[in-house]
């Protein structure tokens, strides 16, 4: 994919922001915006990789992958670049692994206006420093994704949500072998199981789960990270606010943003974060004002 035009649009100076479909927040007000190229370059089913412009809609990529029996682990909606730049794993993270591991290679436009490649096209690769990991979740503050190669996954033979009443998600979590997702709201536990239909049924039965229509609606007030071991005490620590916790991960979706106090590590890496930004975008021209973390 030729990124010359995209690079020229980003330019070498003056503030600029990148937008996709504006499903994850959109651009920076009153700042010139650009859009990344879109379109699927190729899908290699036997490599479990796909290459597309960062402006490609996640749904378009998902549809194309479904035709070859595969899927992306990117959360639904918006653009591929937007999902990667935001970096939030979906509720299938327990089974799929973190979103950040999906990005194998990125060709991006740097603050200098240069086209830069990070990573490589193969699933396994330890050639040099892992700039891809920095780009995922960087909210476009280190470079604007142009073309990406992402890892894909096979579609499951069978996929089914289950639920059960539970004052503690621990026993269900312990009983399941590699569930794709386990959610808990303080009184009900949900689990997404995938694989052979007989295995799924046996797992659900052994864990005391019953068929459910799907996951619960996620409270949209805030997304907080807590230690996985702190999930069991959420009913007390959330002070009555509605929550859904991703068990085994420590991501909590809360109805009210102020409901759960955030704890900051005494060994903060904020100064390293600042140095990263200063190295990659010394004048702060990329998505100005956007704060990561």
């Amino acid at each position: 994919m030729d990124l010359t035009t995209f690079a020229a649009e980003v330019g070498r100076d003056s503030p600029v922001c990148v937008i996709g479909l504006s499903t994850r927040g959109g651009g920076v007000p009153e700042v010139r915006w650009v859009k990344a190229p879109s379109g699927i370059e190729w899908i290699q089913a036997d490599e479990m990789t796909a290459c597309c412009g960062a402006g490609t809609a996640v749904d378009e990529l998902s549809d194309a992958l479904r035709a070859v029996g595969q899927r992306t682990v990117l959360p639904d909606g918006g653009t591929v670049g937007g999902a990667l730049a935001t970096g939030h794993s979906g509720i299938r993270r327990l089974g799929d692994g973190p979103l950040r591991d999906v990005l194998l290679q990125a060709i991006y436009v740097a603050a200098t206006g240069e086209v830069v490649k990070a990573g490589g096209p193969t699933v396994k690769n330890v050639s040099g420093f892992d700039v891809c990991r920095l780009l995922v979740g960087s909210l476009g503050t280190l470079g604007f994704l142009g073309e990406v190669i992402v890892r894909t996954r096979p579609l499951a033979q069978h996929s089914e949500w289950f639920a059960a009443e539970a004052n503690d998600p621990g026993p269900v979590f312990a009983a399941l072998y590699r569930p794709v997702s386990v959610l808990w709201d303080g009184s009900t536990v949900w689990a997404l199981l995938e694989g052979h239909p007989d295995d799924v049924a046996e797992q659900a039965s052994a864990a005391g789960l019953f068929g459910a229509t799907g996951p619960p609606p996620m409270p949209g007030g805030a997304r907080r990270l807590i230690a996985p071991s702190a999930i069991a005490s959420l009913p007390e620590s959330s002070r009555g606010a509605a929550f859904v916790a991703e068990v085994g991960i420590g991501v909590v979706h809360l109805a009210e943003s102020a409901a759960l106090p955030t704890s900051r590590s005494p060994m903060s890496s904020a100064h390293v974060q600042n140095r990263i930004k200063a190295q990659f975008d010394p004048t702060g021209r990329l998505n100005p004002g956007v704060v990561v973390g």
Binding site: R93, P98, R100, D130, V136, P228, S229, V251, S269, I276
Partner: peptide
Amino acid sequence: LPDGDIVMLGSESGEVDGYDLRGAFVGS
């Protein structure tokens, strides 16, 4: 760190707020 600072990269939850310095450090 080489300058003597001690930092915690990543978290037990495996997710991060901010740049994924953990991911940048692994393999460095």
